[in-house]
Design a protein around this nucleic acid. Structure first.
Length: 492
RNA sequence: GUCCCCAUCGUCUAGCCCGGUCUAGGACCACGCCCUUUCACGGCGUAAACAGGGGUUCGAAUCCCCUUGGGGACACCA
């Protein structure tokens, strides 16, 4: 299906201080759709509710979109800067008798609503102000109380073809005469949305399925205004682990939280794109350009998916592994600095060292924070030996002389390179008549404090002879029951 | 209370529109084996689903209805 004219989609967040993962996902779908059709991706800030809006909060949303790599076209639009465009549309409806003034106070309406809920009646405006007599209207006009404008919903049925859900329809009798202009002259959401989508020539409205009820209202507004509505596509809502809307209970709602947790934006985009959409084959790891190429609204599913962070972590690990060491250094560095293991300057000075460290670690990382977690010993010798490891590898009586001999061998090596490190350790094991493993495990524990990690020989080479020998000797002392206080920190 | 939407492994999903090729495929997670100095990666394998009930049909995961379950919406918020 190829849209007739230019594809123009929009994402319309309200400034709340953060970019919600749900909004991020909706943005991704809109963006993929726009890029697939070589159309435009518009950003519109819905800040008509002045009480709750703050220009500063907008920047956080833009930052989130930038991080994900969702570049927008044209300048962002702000509804708050467009207040002058809405009244004329409302005026037109008023003149045609398709809308009417409502003098009911918010307090009164609230009261009526609460009453309806209490009496378990359906909550709907009673059209009190539509039925006003001419005298009453005159009297009210003379008093000049604040008045809002309501759309008069005609009887009938409203239906449309949703690009995801198919044919949908709704009885107009269940739709309220909603307020389109507040008494202070500002438009309400549904009205501003219609006017803006029209003026911005939006071709497809792609948003969460929680907006389906709004779509009927907006369709009625389009009809009253006599303008052609865009096409609609509603997305299944991504749910938290408890199956309700994603909330703080699920760990994180702001996209920036995921950045802090050590996720890569590409993994985030890939994962979120697949949450409710699939290319139809078995592909899962997809680059952004593959996603753009394959994306279509027809393949969006209709049921609400659960956001499973475990799968996201797996995917993130795949992305970390596929990145080359040079790219990975700047990605991992902030987390190492955050953990106090190095500094920005040190990273630059010891770039080659960083590259090797990151290269050794990346196969085991699922999050960027794992680099700090698993690689501490590359930056400091201030670490404790894993108690389990001590029990397992430092307890045999022969272990100590073995480590001492290894330290001796290493210090007398001509060249401390991978080849020599391995040959000399294996040679020693053979001379001692033990398996190499018997020597490898204590050595790993002595030099890293850990029982697991990258290839021992490779990490020893990266650590360097001096550091390795020193750490071996310290372990020998420790085993003798006379541990050396570890206080040397290598920051660079 | 009223209305709307949805329903395949624990989770994400393929298959559904155009019934037979489905003893239901892939992925995450779990478990086992292999590789291996450890961990991880990788490879191989195991466990795991058509919500229930009625129809229609020679035949239903696929079409229809009901039940149940889940989600969402009903503001001078967006």
């Amino acid at each position: 299906m190829s849209p007739p004219s230019e594809v123009r989609v929009r994402i319309a967040p309200s400034p709340s201080g953060f970019l919600h993962v749900g909004t991020a996902r909706t943005s991704i779908y809109n963006w993929l759709f726009a890029r697939h059709h070589r159309g435009k991706f518009i950003l519109r800030i819905e800040d008509t509710d002045l009480e709750r809006s703050d220009p500063e909060l907008v920047e956080v949303i833009l930052e989130g979109l930038r991080w994900l790599g969702l570049n927008w076209d044209e300048q962002p639009y702000y509804q708050s800067k467009r207040f002058e465009v809405y009244p004329s549309y409302a005026e037109k409806l008023l003149q045609q008798g398709k809308a009417y003034h409502c003098y009911c106070s918010p307090e009164l309406l609230k009261q009526k609503r609460e009453e309806a809920i209490r009496e378990k009646r359906s909550v709907k405006y009673d059209r009190h102000c539509l039925r006003l007599s001419e005298e009453e209207k005159k009297r009210l006009e003379a008093e000049a109380p604040p008045k809002a404008i309501r759309i008069k919903i005609p009887p009938g049925e409203t239906s449309f073809h949703d690009l995801v859900y198919g044919d949908l329809s709704y009885d107009n009798a269940d739709i309220d005469d909603l307020i389109i202009m507040r008494s202070d002259g500002r438009p309400t959401y549904n009205f501003a949305c219609v006017v803006d989508d029209y003026e911005m020539k939006i071709s497809h409205v792609i948003r969460g399925n929680d907006h389906i009820p709004n779509t009927y209202k907006q369709l009625l507004l389009y009809e009253a205004l006599g303008i052609t509505p865009p096409q609609f596509a509603h997305l299944p809502l991504s749910l938290g682990i408890d199956r309700s809307k994603i909330s703080k209970r699920d760990g994180a709602v702001a996209i920036t939280d995921y950045r802090q947790m050590g996720f890569l934006p590409e993994a985030m985009v890939n994962f979120l794109a697949l949450l409710g959409w699939s290319p139809g084959d078995d592909r899962e790891l997809m680059s952004t350009s593959e996603l753009i190429e394959a994306f279509s609204l027809e393949r969006v599913s209709q049921s609400n998916p659960v956001f499973d962070i475990e799968k996201l972590k797996w995917m993130n690990g795949e992305y970390i592994r596929s990145r080359d060491d040079n790219e990975l250094v700047p990605l991992a560095a902030p987390f190492l600095i955050e953990a106090g293991l190095t500094t920005k300057l040190a990273v630059e000075i010891r770039w080659e060292y960083m590259k090797k460290v990151v290269g050794l670690l990346k196969g085991r990382c699922r999050l960027l924070t794992d680099f700090a977690e698993l690689g501490r010993y590359f930056f400091t010798d201030k670490f404790d030996y894993e108690p389990e490891g001590v029990k397992k590898h430092f307890s045999s009586p022969e272990c100590n002389p073995w480590l001492a001999s290894l330290a001796e061998r290493y210090s007398s090596l001509q060249k401390f390179d991978l080849q020599a490190i391995e040959t000399s350790l294996r040679g020693l094991a053979e001379e001692l008549g033990i398996s190499a493993a018997k020597l490898i495990h204590p050595t790993r524990l002595a030099t890293t404090g850990m029982t697991k990690g990258p290839s021992l020989f490779e990490l020893l080479e990266v650590l360097g002879r001096e550091e390795v020998v020193e750490r071996l000797e310290r372990a020998v002392d420790f085993i003798r029951g006379n541990p050396t206080p570890a206080d040397k920190t290598d920051t660079g």
